[in-house]
Each structure stands twice: as C-alpha cells, then as structure tokens.
C-alpha cells in the first residue's frame, strides 16, 4: 500500500533547497559563537593566533580568571542584572496595563493613542539620543540607576503584543467576572494576567534581552564608572580601551570570556521562557 503524499509537502528539490538554506543559516550563526567559545577557553597565547578557531587547542579558563580579576566584572554584572530585572518587571507590568486599557472600545482617543504607540516603534532610537540626554539631565537622571531603568521602560512592541493577547480572551469572561462582583483591577490581575502568561513571558524575554544588551542609553547617560553596565565594559574591552581598566593590553581570550559571561544570563532567560515563546510570538504575528 502506498501512502499518499501530503498536498502541503514540498517537492524534493524545494526540500533540498530548504535544507541547504537552513544549513547556511545555521553555520552563519553557530560559527561565530563557536569561535567566541573556542577563544574564550584557549590560553592567552593560543587566542592570539590569527584565523577562525572552532575548538580550543589547549583547554584553559585563564581568560575567565583574568577578566574577572583585572576588570572587576562583578560590579557591571550586578549593575546590568539589577537594571535589567527591575526594568523588565516594570516594562511587562506597564505593557500589560496599557495593552489592557487599549482593548477598551470606549476609551476616548483610542485610535490616536494606538497610532502614537505605533509611531514610537518606527522612530530609530539613535535619532532621539540628544533629546534623551537633555531630558535625563533636566530630570536629574544622569548617572543614576533610575535613569537606566526609566529609559526605554515603555515598549510599543510589548503594548501591541499584550493588547492582541488580551483581545483574544473572550469578552464573555470579562462579563462573567463583572457579574461575579470583580472590580476592573481584579479582572485584570485575576483573569487577564493569568490567562496571558505566554504573552507576558514573551514581552519579558524580549525586554530582558534588549535591556541586557543595551549600550546606547548607558553610554549616553552614564559617565560614572561605578554605574557602568556590562555592555559598556565589554565595549571598552573590545575596542581595547584603557579608559576604565588602566591596563594597556587585554588578550582576546579574556575579551571573549567576558562575552561568554555576558551571554550566560540570556541563555538562562531563554531556557526559562522557551516553552512560552513560540505561542507568544505566534499570537502577536497572527492578530497584529
């Protein structure tokens, strides 16, 4: 008995092309990452050999020890962790609140507000740097953790994603909760938020990644070395800056070790968020 071929199945050449493209994509992503890992776990001598290395010739963690000792990475690491965690928490909360309010059909100027939210997604952040600096200066947020947290706290993407998520919840649940004597805040916290966990995790993850990797805002508003975040320190390492280290040369294995350390929290965040991410992203794309 022959099994009938599924109509949606690709033809053999298309499948082969598909796989070929996937392999190219995979290689283009995995090779730089393997190169970083290989150099990070090499000795300082081996790390200076030119060319692409995929596996360390001699396994060593001296780069990690060196970077941790000489650069005192604890402080920027903790700064980044603090700013990113607090910022992510508030961004998720605010995105959900604004998204929820925007689901209300009788909200005055709803479409206008929605347009403003969309506009924020279209303007490149580089264009706003000067005004961000002067605004932060006027508000006294330069060189403060509050400044690092407050800037970029509202995200158009997060708001739109949460709005779409909430709109997918049947209206009858809202009405049932109203009849069950629940206040608007109770409906939001007890019904809508628990039913939107994939959306919240998606917004949280995207926010965590962007805040953890954020370089523009810290570079713009922070000059105090004690408030430097990890990306700022890594940037100065990569450009071999002596501005904050006082040393003249740092071996590539130490720089790459710094990058590996900076990537670890993202991998942990991904492992936690992973099972929610697909459904969260999908919903945003379908409904948006």
């Amino acid at each position: 008995m022959y099994l009938r071929k599924n109509k949606n199945q690709l033809s053999r050449p298309a499948r082969l092309l598909n796989r070929f493209m996937l392999i190219i994509l995979f290689i283009s992503m995995i090779i730089p990452f393997m190169n970083v890992l290989a150099i990070a776990f090499s000795t300082s001598k081996n790390s200076m050999v030119p060319g692409i290395t995929l596996f360390p010739k001699e396994f060593s963690v001296e780069g990690f020890v060196l970077i941790w000792k000489t650069q005192n990475l604890w402080l920027p690491f903790l700064n980044s962790l603090f700013v990113t965690t607090v910022g992510t928490f508030f961004q998720v909360l605010l995105s959900a609140l604004v998204g929820y309010i925007l689901t209300k059909k009788d909200l005055p100027f709803r479409n206008l507000i929605l347009s403003f939210v969309l506009i924020t997604m279209m303007i490149p952040s580089e264009l706003t740097l000067v005004s961000i600096y002067s605004l932060n200066r006027d508000l006294g947020l330069l060189n403060t953790y509050s400044g690092l947290i407050v800037n970029g706290l509202m995200s158009g993407f997060g708001i739109i994603l949460m709005k779409n998520y909430f709109e997918a919840i049947p209206q009858s649940l809202f009405e049932a909760a109203q009849i069950d004597y629940a206040s608007e805040f109770k409906i939001f916290f007890k019904i809508y938020l628990p039913m939107s966990i994939p959306g919240l995790v998606t917004v949280g993850f995207v926010s965590f990644v962007s805040k953890w990797n954020s370089l523009l805002i810290p570079v713009t508003i922070i000059t105090d070395q004690n408030k430097f975040t990890l990306p700022v320190v890594l940037r100065s390492l990569i450009f071999n800056s002596t501005a904050n280290s006082g040393t003249t040369f740092i071996a590539p294995n130490a720089i790459m070790a710094g990058i590996v350390i900076s990537v670890l929290p993202l991998i942990i965040a991904y492992i936690i968020a992973q099972r929610f991410l697909v459904s969260g992203m999908n919903l945003g794309s379908i409904k948006g």
Partner: peptide, 10 residues
C-alpha cells in the same frame, strides 16, 4: 447571575 452560551468558565 448569568450562564453564558460559551460557559465563560475561568
């Protein structure tokens, strides 16, 4: 109290 067509259970 209201019973909805789609049950509207939480």
């Amino acid at each position: 109290a209201m019973v909805f067509q789609d049950y509207a259970l939480y």
